[in-house]
């Protein structure tokens, strides 16, 4: 029973939005959870965060960045095509509780998964300050949507083409040094960014949550591919997370384990490009 793609657009270069017909998942999804999809018989199972969901229309929205074979293949699919497998909602939902100001920090494609979390905090009346960043202005994602769910929105670009010239963590540090009563920082983005965020908030003693993107297979706690070290204990990101206390996460291990299949990923991508006539082999 394949899952129909209802819409696919490129929002910024190499980053796409895909809307999938999955009524049951849409009814159950909560901010912070993810799905696992497999395009076809020979495909790999890959996890993507649920960036938005509509229980009435029965749709689930994901945002993905082209990084390797599967995400490149995914980017060639369009409305009317379908995915063979689509399973979720997986992982624990974000904890959304009344609190002082919440700062949501999203980097790159991580802006998409931070959106439903910001929206959920806003919905229960928390003050939300968001900081979103990208390498360059043309790669900046969902500024308008983030604006809607944030009391204040800061933008940063690595090359200074929009907003603050520099990293999201520069702005975060300033906010922490100011008078704003910040009780929670939630951050999603590349592992290196989340590690820096953790380093910035640590001296201020502010609770900091990150969503870990370890390599996964089943997403149900059955294989242990996704294991991460949190507070000195091995956890399975798919069932114990994906969100964890940033100050306890061993980011070096996470980043090392993400590199585990680098050679194979490279080979898969080369083959894929060749199959599509992208090279002379």
């Amino acid at each position: 029973m394949p899952f129909k793609i209802l819409g696919k657009i490129q929002i910024v270069p190499t980053i796409h939005q895909m809307i999938i017909d999955a009524p049951k998942i849409a009814r159950k999804a909560k901010a912070g959870q993810f799905i696992i999809l497999k395009i076809d018989e020979t495909g790999e199972r890959i996890p993507l965060t649920i960036a938005d969901f509509d229980p009435e229309k029965g749709t689930v929205t994901t945002i993905f960045m082209e990084v390797g074979k599967t995400t490149k293949h995914l980017s060639t699919l369009n409305a009317g095509d379908s995915l063979q497998d689509f399973v979720g909602p997986l992982g624990n939902p974000s904890e959304i509780e009344p609190s002082d100001t919440v700062v949501c920090v999203g980097g790159g494609v991580g802006v998409a998964p931070i959106y439903p979390i910001a929206r959920a905090h806003k919905a229960i009346g928390n003050k939300v300050i968001s900081i979103i960043g990208a390498r360059s202005a043309e790669l900046l994602l969902w500024e308008d949507k983030m604006q809607e769910v944030s009391d204040e929105l800061y933008i940063t670009t690595d090359d200074g083409t929009k907003g603050h010239h520099g990293f999201v963590t520069d702005v975060l540090k300033k906010l922490l040094e100011g008078d704003e009563p910040i009780s929670l920082v939630v951050s999603i983005g590349p592992a290196i960014m989340m590690r820096t965020v953790a380093g910035v908030t640590h001296p201020f003693g502010v609770k900091t949550i990150v969503s870990l993107n370890s390599i996964m297979v089943d997403g149900t706690g059955m294989c242990g591919a996704c294991r991460v070290l949190v507070g000195g204990e091995t956890k399975f990101a798919c069932v114990d997370g994906p969100e964890f206390n940033a100050h306890e996460v061993d980011f070096t291990l996470l980043m090392n384990r993400l590199m585990m299949y680098r050679d194979e990923e490279q080979q898969a991508l080369e083959n894929y490009k060749c199959d599509r006539g992208g090279c002379q082999c």
Binding site: T42, G43, E44, R45, K69, T70, V217, M260, Y261, E264, E265, Q267, A268, N271
Partner: peptide
């Protein structure tokens, strides 16, 4: 399950 023994014909790798 993922047929990694047929990689790269199947996408899932194994070391």
């Amino acid at each position: 399950l993922m047929k990694a023994y047929q990689f790269p014909g199947y996408d899932t790798p194994v070391k």
